[in-house]
Simulated scan of single mutants.
Amino acid sequence: MLSPNTTLKQIEILGYLGTKFPNWIGDDSFNNIVDIKLSGSQHCSNLPPLGQLPSLKILHISSFDSVTTVGAEFYGNSSAKKKPFSSLEILIFKNCHYFEALSMSDGQCQELTYLSIYCCRSFVSFPNGGLIAPKLSDLNIYNCPELMWLPEKMTSLSSLKSLTIRSCPLIKAIPEGGLPISLSKLRINYHQLLRIKWNWQTLPNLKNTLSEEGFPTSLSSLSISGCPLLKKIYDTKDSENKEYWRKISHIPHVGGSSERQEEDSFLNMKQAMF
C-alpha cells in the first residue's frame, strides 16, 4: 500500500471516500508530523488512531458524518508506554453532525491548550469525571443544541483563561463547584447570561467588585450574542440610550453579535459615544 514519506510535517486529507483509513495513518514512524487536518469523510465511523504520533500538535477534524464517539481507537495502542497525544496542543471538532461524545482518560492530552467543538449538533457528553487537561487555556463550545452540561469538575482546569458558550440553549447551569478561578474571558449568549446563576465572587480574575449591572468591574471583554434588542437599546441616534452605555462603559471591549462585521460596528459605536 502506498504511503507518504515519513519526514512529512503536515498532512491534510479532504473528502476521503473509504470506510476505514489506511494503516499508515497514525503509525508512530511518522514522528515528524506536527499538523493534521481531516475533513469530509462521509463513510468512516471511526477516526484513525492518531494518539501515538509523538510530535503532533494540531489536529483539526471536520465533516465526519458517521463518527458518533471518540474513544480508545482514537488514542492508539493502549499497551504503548508513551501517553497518547503527548504533544497535542490544539484539538478542533467542526461540523461533525452525529458526533455525540468525547472520551478522555488520565494521562491523555496533557499538553492540550485549546479545545473547540463547533457545530456538532448531536454532541451531548464530555468525558466522565471531566476534562483531564491541566494546561487547557481556551475552551470553545459553539452550536451544540443537544448539550445540557459543561464538563464536570471545571475547577480542576487550573489554566483555563477563556470560555466560550454560544448557541447551546440547553445549558442552564454551571457545573457543581463552579468555574476555575483562572478564568479571565467569558463569551456567552445573552439569554444564557441571564438564565445561569453566576457566582462572580469565585472568579477573582473576572471580578473585583460588582458594578450596578452585576458585571465585574475588572471585566476586560464582553461579547453578547443572540439578543435582538441590543441594536435598539444601544442606538447611538437616541440620546436617551447613553445611560445604557454608561452602565457598561468600564468594560474596554464590548461586542454585540457573533458576526465579526457587526462586532466591529458595535465596538465603533461604543467608542463614538465616549
Rank of each mutant, 00 (worst) to 15 (best):
P204I: 00
L183Y: 15
S182N: 11
S182G: 13
P204K: 02
P180I: 08
S182A: 12
L193F: 15
I196K: 06
N189K: 03
L194K: 10
S211L: 02
I188Y: 04
N189T: 06
L193W: 14
P180S: 09
Q201F: 01
W200P: 05
E212S: 04
T209W: 07
I188L: 10
N199C: 03
K207G: 05
P204T: 08
K207I: 05
H191L: 01
R195I: 01
I181W: 08
L210P: 08
S184V: 14
I188D: 05
E212A: 09
N208S: 10
L183G: 14
K185R: 15
W198A: 12
K197H: 09
S211W: 00
N205W: 01
W198K: 12
H191A: 02
N199H: 07
P180V: 11
K185Y: 12
K197N: 07
N189I: 03
L193A: 13
N205V: 06
S182V: 14
L210E: 11
P180N: 05
E212Q: 05
H191Q: 06
G214A: 07
G214M: 02
Y190D: 12
L206F: 11
K207Y: 08
E213Y: 09
K207M: 04
P204M: 03
I196G: 01
H191G: 04
W200R: 00
T209V: 05
K197F: 08
H191D: 03
L206K: 05
